[in-house]
Design a protein around this nucleic acid. Sequence first.
DNA 1: TAGTGGTCTAGACCACTCC
DNA 2: GAGTGGTCTAGACCACTAA
Lengths: 244, 244
Amino acid sequence: MNIWQYQPKPGTPLYKVVENYLRDQINGGELSPGDLIPSEPQLAERLNVSGGTVKKAIENLVHENLLYRHQGKGTYVSRIDFNNSLFKFFTYGNPSGNPVRIHKETPTRELRQGSEKICQRLNVPTHTELLYIERIGYRDDKPVLIEKCWWIADMVRGLEKEEVHIPDLLYAVVVDQFNLPIIRSEESLTAEAANLSTSKVLEVEPGAPLVVLHRTTYSRDNTPVEFRITRGRPDSFSYRTEIR
Amino acid sequence: MNIWQYQPKPGTPLYKVVENYLRDQINGGELSPGDLIPSEPQLAERLNVSGGTVKKAIENLVHENLLYRHQGKGTYVSRIDFNNSLFKFFTYGNPSGNPVRIHKETPTRELRQGSEKICQRLNVPTHTELLYIERIGYRDDKPVLIEKCWWIADMVRGLEKEEVHIPDLLYAVVVDQFNLPIIRSEESLTAEAANLSTSKVLEVEPGAPLVVLHRTTYSRDNTPVEFRITRGRPDSFSYRTEIR
DNA sequence: TAGTGGTCTAGACCACTCC
DNA sequence: GAGTGGTCTAGACCACTAA
């Protein structure tokens, strides 16, 4: 194995070269989420670097949440963790402060031609066939959010059928049954006023403030596979952070 | 120097002990934001550990943003960086995507007795004397946000005077002129409807959705010194993040 | 030129997992 | 017991900064 093929610029530290090698293996599909990667001594020999250098590279990737280690077992490629989604902040707002489970139902699921706006988000031509899924989230039987998802139909062929059960975490089905690896997501958050139909579903006044979450989800090679808009009641949303 | 006094539990790794030592120095005030800490060899000798162990401890604290390093010069204690505030996402939303500067004015500045709610946030008895500051933020001469701040008056005695200029970044004055170190802040974000007076200031309809940011700022020993509520137009706010 | 952090190596010993 | 990651050390060499 010639490690130098992974050196983008001369002067790059060796441990960065090792990082790039592992990143390429993951992004290129040689290593998939959940896979065990070669052990540190194996990598060190294969790439002709010392164990310490491999360790440092892996430590950095663990810090980035791309890998995780398990003492005595090995180092694995991380699965995407939707607990890092801003979405989870919809579970706050109850007096106790404890997270509350949100139950989801799926009133609508159908194939549609994509609008220009949605297709742009998915980086496909306008009118590409999409699977549209609408879901409503309940907390203690009260509707708190409504979620509209557009999937590229060809990527999840069969998901439109009524027989295919959709659990609360939709991605589980996609990854397991449609063999479509989910690599990463981008989210953006803002606020807007409820329109008439949304206000009815969420039992608020038309024009009432809502928290709005846009999410694009990517498979291998940075291919977008889903675009989703979640609108929720702000009284059940609070995002906390710390500055230092 | 007996390093073991910093070991909370037996079995704690040495580098954690070094981390705790440095953290204590910072939280206790022996090291202040901006200070140069002892060099790695000095720390290694003082604490009777190897250079590699000190390096690992410092690397971890750098990752936490508590320290930063400058090759050839040394390692410093970080100053709080308000660029990490959610507030900065109020600068987005212009077509180009580039950050836009927000200019702030200060129409109100006066001493008041604190309400029960605000005093609770500041962890002081109700009716403690507070300095109330109200500020309005403009982007391209359009008001986009309104900010209400409550400072513990005793902490910033003199800031109530008209002669003391308040720049866009209020904390600069506090740190420099009132010698009050700012250590960290906590923020939480949600949405709510504009009330009458806010809607007038921000030139929106009453009841229009606003993005709301609550912030508590702490000095040494986790003492709260300021509580602040920022309300802004959502069309000038968008918070982006990535999940993986 | 002396002192700082940045990179890299080699190797010892320990703790955990699995067979 | 063999293999994995976790901790710790010692030391070489390089790159940057300041006087």
